[in-house]
Nucleic acid binder design. Structure first.
Lengths: 197, 197
DNA sequence: GAATGACCGAAAATGGATTTTGGTCATTTA
DNA sequence: TAAATGACCAAAATCCATTTTCGGTCATTC
């Protein structure tokens, strides 16, 4: 084992740079400089910029899944678990600039890799949610529906409330977002008919 | 009244051109040519290209509202009415190229006027829905919530199912879209607890 | 043999010449 | 003489040749 783990140095430097400047504006030269490493060294660990980016993205995805997973408790119901998972993802997102920066980059200059990366994250979240949804369906906790559609809608709803809505009015706070999420997904809007309960 | 209504000629020509080529790629010269009118004539009716575009957009918005309004029946419940309104909007959209073209233009080259125009349409739809929602709340038909948030989510859900979803899988058909809309908005996902009914 | 940075070609940024286009207005037309 | 027009203008968009930047390589160094 070497005195300094250069691979790790590179990963950390790249991670910082992608989060700070986005995909396009981080140059391999700059990553090398931040990592205190020659440019060539990067290429002994990663075949190209794309793969370096992908590795960072993957580890973010793994981290998000890990964070989500530890919120799941078998003894709580689906909606309670969902509530916690979404909260954790919300938290993670607010702490990690990478995704915010990539969204911005996609909007402003349409970098294809930013688009691809965000799509990858989105798909992996949907895939993860899909598993949860399928399980909830199998034990009859929620209605038997297409799990992919449900997961997709759940994510879109989440993004609509946390992000898209901010262009219309001042942002909703965390508590409100949770309430609306649960309301739309679990109970629906219909007023309980008087005396029905 | 003149033998030919030049203002109408211009409007129709511009309407065709915007729908066919989008905002940026329709030139005033071309509108004039299609309308069989001198370029200067356009400016006797409209102060500039932007206003011409806006007039066409406004009449589309008015038309959409008219179409929506005739689907509303006081004797039907909120969700039934919502179902019909969304169906009518779906229908309208599939018949009118303008909005599809503008979305495409926004995505491909980011024309600011396309963005502004689509936002205007979106806001006017939300505003219209908001009225319906407020009414439903006032008569206790749905839960007392922020009507703007509810309207916003309703529209986002609709767009997610009709448009965004198509990038993930083959499009849902009309019937499925309606079912999911009603399910998420009205009833929620929660399985009816056995014997609750 | 691991690390490096000078080097290479491809791709992107730059900027200035050229073309297009929104908008005007003197002239024409009915 | 009021409405219609298209030549005309300035500004914006486009093109294109030149320069610069950047991802990736590899001979040299440590």
């Amino acid at each position: 084992m070497p005195a300094v783990d250069r691979r790790k140095q590179v990963l950390e430097a790249a991670s910082k740079s992608f989060a700070l400047f986005g995909y396009k504006a981080t140059t391999m030269e700059q990553v090398a400089k931040i990592a205190n490493v020659g440019k060539g060294t990067i290429y002994t660990f990663f075949t190209n910029k794309e793969e370096l980016f992908d590795e960072i993205l993957q580890s973010s995805i793994v981290e998000m899944r890990r964070i989500s997973e530890r919120e799941i408790r078998e003894d709580r119901d689906f909606f309670d678990n969902l509530y916690r998972v979404l909260d954790a993802l919300l938290e993670y997102r607010s702490e990690h600039e990478l995704f915010i920066k990539l969204s911005q980059e996609l909007r402003d200059i349409g970098t294809p890799m930013a688009h691809e990366g965000l799509a990858k994250v989105e798909n992996s979240i949907i895939g993860y949610l899909q598993g949860i949804v399928e399980h909830a369906i199998s034990i009859g906790e929620i209605k038997p529906l297409d799990a992919q559609v449900v997961s997709f809608v759940m994510l879109k709803l989440y993004v609509a409330l946390t992000t898209d809505f901010n262009q219309l009015r001042e942002p909703l706070d965390k508590e409100q977002i949770k309430e609306y999420m649960m309301l739309f997904l679990a109970e629906g809007l219909k007023a309980e008919s008087p005396g029905a309960r």
